[in-house]
Design a protein around this nucleic acid. Structure first.
Lengths: 209, 209
DNA sequence: TTAATTATTGAACGACGTTCATTATTTTTC
DNA sequence: GAAAAATAATGAACGTCGTTCAATAATTAA
C-alpha cells in the first residue's frame, strides 16, 4: 500500500510532522487574525502575513491555496470557539423553526462584532468552488444548519421529502445572501432581515404547486 | 449645473462620442464573445481581448472595470437576444408559479448550450457587489424574475406582504445557487434541480410560523 | 477659434497565485 | 544506529489582474 497517505484511521497518534503542522496552522491563523483585525482583510497581503508569521510566501500558499481559504480557516476557528456559548441557548427552543430562529438571533449578534471579516468571507462562501477537495468539507455554518434542520425534520416540523443536505444548502445560500445585502447596505438591520429570510425559507413565497 | 453629467433625459440624440462608445462596446463584446467561446473565459486574458479588439488594455478596463463585468455584458446581450423567443412561450402559462416554471424550463435549455460561460458568470453574480453604481443595475435575469413575480402577485398567487424586489432577489440567489451546484457536479440535471428549487422557493421547507 | 471635457495610450506598479530547482527535515527501511 | 525515500520549506522568477500617472488626441461648449 502507498505509504504517503494512510487510511486516516484517526486514532493513531500523529507524528511529529503532523503536530508541527497543526501548531504552525494555529500560529498562522493567530497572526492572520491579528493583522486582519487591525487593518482589514483586503489591506493585508499574503506576503506580509508570511513575514509576520516568519514563513516563506510559498509555504503559506502551501497551507492555504488562496487567501480566502485562510480567512475561512480563521473564521471557522472563531465560530467553533463561540459554539459552546451558543449551543446551550438553543436547547430552550423547540426543534425546528423556533430553534433556527434563535440560532439566527445569536448568530446575528456574533456577526455584528465581526463585520470587517464578514463581507469578504460571505462573498467568498457564496461563490467558492475552487478549493481543493478537503477544503470543500462542510463549513461550520453549513454543518450547524444541517444539524438544526435534521432536528426539525425529526420533530415533524420540516418536510421530509427532500434531503437535509439540500434544505441546508438552500438555507445557507439564503443566509449568505442576506448577510451580503446587509453588509453592503447599512440601512438594513441584520436581525430583522434574517428573520424575514427565515420566514421566506420556511413558508415559501406562496405559490401553490 | 455641472455640464459633464446631464440629467439623462434620454430623448436627446446622443452625440457622436456616445455613438462611437456604443459601437465600440459592441465591437469589444463581439471580440470577447468569440474568444471566450473559442478558448474559455479563464484562458483569455484582458490584454489579448484588448489586442484583438485593437485597443489599449487601459481603455478596455475603462469600459469594463473587471473582467467579469465584460462577461456579464456579453452574457446579458445574449440573454436579450434570446428574450423574443422566450417571452411568447410564457404567455401560455398562467401567471405565477406555472409561468415561472415554464421560464426555468426554457432557461435551462438556453443555459445548457452556454455551459462554458455559465460557471464563471454564476460565480461572479453570486458574489458581486463591487461594480460601480451603473453596473449594479438589475441584471437581465433579475429583471425577468421581478416581472414574473409581480405578475404572480397581481394574480394572487404569491404573497404580497413582502416587496417584489425581495422575493425576486431570494429567487435569484436560489437560482444561481442551483446553477452553481449543477455546473460543479455533473451528476445533477439542471432542469430537475431547478424544478426542485422552485418548489422549495414557492412552498418553503415546511416550518409553520 | 478657444477653452474645457473626456478618451486613449504606453509604461510602470502592487498584489495574487504559480512554477521550479534547491535545500532541509522527517519518516521509513535496512 | 545509518541510508534511502518521502515530504516540507525556501528564494527567485513569472503571468495575470487591476490600478496609477503623465502625456497626447479627440470631442464638445463657449
Amino acid at each position: 500500500m502507498p505509504i504517503h497517505r494512510m487510511p486516516q484511521t484517526g486514532d493513531e497518534p500523529p507524528g511529529r510532522r503532523e503536530r508541527k503542522r497543526q501548531q504552525q496552522l494555529d500560529h498562522i491563523a493567530d497572526t492572520a487574525w491579528a493583522l486582519f483585525e487591525a487593518e482589514g482583510f483586503e489591506a493585508v497581503t499574503m506576503e506580509r502575513i508570511a513575514e509576520a508569521a516568519d514563513l516563506s510566501k510559498v509555504t503559506l500558499y502551501r497551507h492555504f491555496p488562496v487567501k480566502e481559504a485562510l480567512l475561512r480557516h480563521v473564521f471557522h476557528r472563531e465560530l467553533r470557539a463561540a459554539w459552546p456559548d451558543i449551543q446551550p441557548e438553543l436547547a430552550w427552543a423547540a426543534p425546528g423553526r423556533a430553534r433556527l430562529a434563535r440560532f439566527l438571533e445569536l448568530q446575528a449578534a456574533w456577526c455584528e462584532s465581526r463585520r470587517a471579516f464578514l463581507l469578504p468571507y460571505t462573498r467568498f462562501r457564496l461563490s467558492d468552488s475552487r478549493l481543493p477537495a478537503e477544503g470543500r468539507e462542510r463549513s461550520g455554518m453549513e454543518a450547524i444548519f444541517s444539524e438544526l434542520i435534521a432536528q426539525g425534520q425529526a420533530a415533524g416540523e420540516f418536510r421530509a421529502d427532500l434531503p437535509v443536505a439540500l434544505l441546508a444548502m438552500h438555507l445557507q445560500f439564503a443566509h449568505l445572501a442576506t448577510l451580503l445585502r446587509c453588509l453592503t447596505d447599512d440601512r438594513l438591520a441584520l436581525a430583522d432581515e434574517l428573520a424575514t429570510m427565515l420566514d421566506l425559507v420556511c413558508n415559501g413565497m406562496g405559490g401553490r404547486s
